[in-house]
Amino acid sequence: MNNTRTRPAPALHTTRGRGRWRGYLYVLPALAVYLAFAVLPALHTAYLSFFDWDGVTLGEWVGLDNYREILLEDPVLRRSVLNALVLVAFFSLLPIAFGLAMTGLLARHRRPGMGAYRFLFMLPQVVPLVAVGVTWRWLYGDDGLVNQTFRAVGLDGVTRAWLGDFDAALVAVGLVGTWVLSGLCMMLFLSGVQKVDPSLYEAARLDGAGPVREFVSVTLPHLRGEVAVAMTVTLVAALASFDIVYVTTNGGPGEQTTVPGLLVYRLAFSDGRVGLAAALAVVLSCLILVLVYAVNRLSRPERAE
């Protein structure tokens, strides 16, 4: 007679619990890195924003005075936030509109040379932004290519020192951002088009839909997620812009192109007002979080009733 006892099978919930804890262990190293290099510095920055500190001597607790100065007292600080919001139109809205237009033209029919298109439009993403700023500073110069083009077509009255003009400097900087980010948006949308069933396009054409109707009814609804990603990335690029502005205008002329990222650098490393710089960084971060949250809420698919 066989007296061997068989072990009972482990409970299902026990197995699942072990698997869950094993999964948590796998992400602990990444979580530790994120906490050390992202969360803790952000919390330390928020802590410094309540002090009047020059970065060397002992700081003095001032409470919400730094935030009051940003939001109510200092016009330069408020102007920098408004400039960043203006740049949203050039860094975000225009690149997304251009990317959607190019996607509508290129996605309707498969054309030869798509690899060359992708390379040319993604080139600004490969080039360092400092090099981009130097290049466009030369293009916008008195004898740069932009003014030479206007003179060649007889529009001498339009030429100006674009980056030194009080009315045109912010627009000129914004157009640089449009050039940089349009290729990224187009690549995101072209990748999203690949998941669209070709039979939907065929059905739309059989129903007599033209290119515009086909794009609005078939292509655009399937790009909702990609548009949300592009909006998020470009919003952050617009509100946190520093490289292009620093290299092209350094915030000038006057304060016409000053943005929060540039002011944080000046306040912390040039003026010795680290507490005020930290407060401005916190305000900028909160503004980015609010706008990104709004974009994600609006981009969620509607639930079926």
Rank of each mutant, 00 (worst) to 15 (best):
P211T: 15
L188F: 07
P221A: 13
G154T: 07
H222Q: 10
L106I: 04
F166G: 12
E202P: 01
R300D: 07
A169R: 04
A268R: 05
S199Q: 15
L284C: 02
D271L: 15
A84K: 01
Q125Y: 00
S182C: 04
V193F: 15
G254Q: 04
W162S: 06
D197E: 02
F189C: 09
S182F: 12
E60A: 10
V86I: 10
V236Y: 12
V292F: 05
L184F: 11
R5N: 12
N296G: 08
T159N: 09
D54P: 08
V295G: 08
L145Q: 02
T249R: 08
I288Y: 00
G275E: 03
W53E: 07
S191E: 11
I70Q: 06
A42V: 15
G23T: 12
S49N: 06
F50V: 15
V56C: 14
A169V: 01
V126K: 09
A168R: 12
T15S: 14
P198M: 03
I244E: 01
D74A: 05
G157H: 14
D156Q: 08
L155P: 04
L87D: 04
D271G: 13
V290R: 12
A172P: 09
T234E: 03
G133K: 02
L287D: 07
M122F: 04
V76Q: 15
L100S: 01
V39E: 00
L145S: 05
R18F: 01
M186T: 05
Y117S: 11
R16D: 02
F121P: 05
P253E: 04
E214T: 03
V247F: 02
M122K: 07
L239H: 06
L123H: 09
R213G: 10
W138F: 09
F189I: 11
Q256M: 10
C286E: 14
M102H: 09
R224Y: 05
A238Q: 05
L12M: 13
W179K: 07
R18C: 12
D207K: 11
V212T: 14
M114K: 15
G141V: 01
D143H: 15
D142S: 08
E69W: 15
V236A: 11
L85S: 11
M122L: 12
D52K: 06
L188A: 09
F189V: 03
D207P: 11
L58W: 14
V282W: 06
G157W: 13
M122E: 02
V153F: 02
T178C: 01
G19W: 01
A42M: 13
H109Y: 14
T57S: 15
T45D: 14
H13S: 15
R79W: 01
L223W: 00
G99P: 06
A152H: 09
L263H: 09
L263A: 07
L284F: 13
A36C: 08
G174K: 07
L163M: 10
A38T: 15
R160L: 11
T178S: 11
E302W: 11
D271N: 10
G251L: 08
E73Q: 08
A277S: 06
N3P: 15
L184C: 13
E202K: 06
Y140L: 01
T234F: 06
D165K: 06
Y140D: 00
A101T: 10
A9G: 07
F51C: 02
A268G: 09
G210N: 01
E69S: 11
D156L: 09
A268D: 03
G208W: 12
Y246F: 08
P10H: 02
